[in-house]
Design a binder for these strands. Structure first.
Lengths: 232, 232
DNA sequence: ATTCAGTAGATTGTTGACAATCTACAATCA
DNA sequence: TGATTGTAGATTGTCAACAATCTACTGAAT
């Protein structure tokens, strides 16, 4: 007998996981900015739980490098410096290269179609030209694109590491408020070339393209940061 | 005024981190085997703390994928299947390749010397031939070799991810009791070639050699597992 | 004015107790 | 015999209280 989903949820979900997910959402969603202090009692009261589960969630988030803990001082949303971001980008590029290689080897036709559909939507956004809000529309498409790719690579460990590293970099973007700058849809051509390489099963090419894609987006981000900050 | 190390330790170390470190030690040291159940009260009593810190440590270890938690059932040392190990090896190979590339680019002369010294010791162990205990002597040297390399790559994020992945694979070795088989010092020649490539600053070569080194050691492990288990 | 010690409040670290859930075994019934 | 129900003990999930530490402020002394 299959367990109903509602029951399963209750069986698997503790208050700690709930708190953890909620805090994760707030951090990655920008509600909690890097450097912000997380006060146990405050969060506990807000979510209607005691401090125990909150503390446990903190420990998990710390290990996921989303927060930093100072003993007797408190827990803070992690701040990623430029140097750290550069290091993380290096790792991400390598992982992304592996994703390209494996995806080219293992992707299935229907997955190719799904990704092509996303690229098509990206094109649509890109054609509108620099309208305000384009970056906001473009960002989730970009996330979906890379998400579908890593799924096609069919490697759970890789997927887990990839998610983690993307989260870390997200933290950096938040900190620099370079969000809009990074998301200018200039890389749609990149994406098209990547899909083609993957669809053809050209492992070497897919690996190289994805690797370079990451390095480029790093450069693009840096250039955006070098410019004086525009009005928010 | 510089803070004395003893004070600093007390300032930074909470019971939770202490418990976490101790459990990590026991898991990676083989004292706690994959699948073993960790009972909160038992560990708490043994370490002389209450259950709170133990639970927090569990959450951290879970996020580090060293243990698996089942709600209301308990916490267990994680078991890594053959399929998972294969996936993890793929990721490790990519990371190791990056390590080679970066180390070749950034290593300093004194670091080269240190690594060469380790390889020399490996040779010494290797020349003794298949004496019992060789694997035990070889293993820490191998760990040190790779540890020095990742240090030479000068990328903290990479180092963190690398440590994590090595731990995960360690779990797999423990589970299969393939320890001795994996540590046969057949790869000393590999190591020599790797040091040379890194010392020369040949990024491409170092990357390729390290990548293949990991893939080979995976194959070696699999071959060892295919053989019937020898007497412990 | 500036520095310093001292204090009150806020916040974190740790603990023990209680409630909810699971596990293993005994008793019951078909 | 075998399956099922029902308990008792063990274990986990959650909470509230206490202790330790930090922070911000006050006021005195230089």
């Amino acid at each position: 007998m299959a367990t109903p989903p509602a029951i399963e949820l209750l069986q698997q979900t503790s208050l700690t996981t709930l708190v953890q997910r909620e805090l994760e959402r707030r951090i990655l969603g920008g509600e909690l900015v890097p450097g912000a202090k997380l006060i146990e009692a405050e969060i506990a009261a807000e979510l209607g739980v005691s401090r125990g589960p909150v503390r446990e969630a903190f420990r998990a988030l710390e290990q996921a490098s989303l927060v930093r803990t100072e003993k007797n001082r408190g827990v803070f949303v992690r701040q990623v410096s430029l140097e750290e971001a550069n290091e993380i980008y290096e790792v991400r590029a390598a992982l992304e290269g592996l994703i390209g290689r494996l995806a080219a080897r293992r992707i299935r036709p229907e997955q190719v179609e799904k990704i092509r559909a996303v690229v098509k939507k990206m094109h649509a956004v890109g054609r509108r030209g620099g309208q305000p809000g384009d970056a906001i529309a473009y960002y989730p498409l970009n996330v979906e694109f890379h998400g579908l790719l890593v799924e096609a690579a069919r490697n759970r460990a890789l997927q887990a590491y990839y998610r983690r590293i993307v989260n870390e970099l997200d933290l950096y973007r938040r900190e620099t408020i370079a969000r809009s700058a990074e998301n200018i849809p200039v890389s749609t051509r990149d994406h098209e070339a990547i899909v083609n390489a993957v669809a053809k099963g050209d492992e070497k090419l897919a690996e190289r393209l994805l690797y370079e894609h990451v390095i480029e987006s790093r450069e693009r981000l840096h250039r955006a940061l070098a410019k004086p900050a525009r009005a928010a």
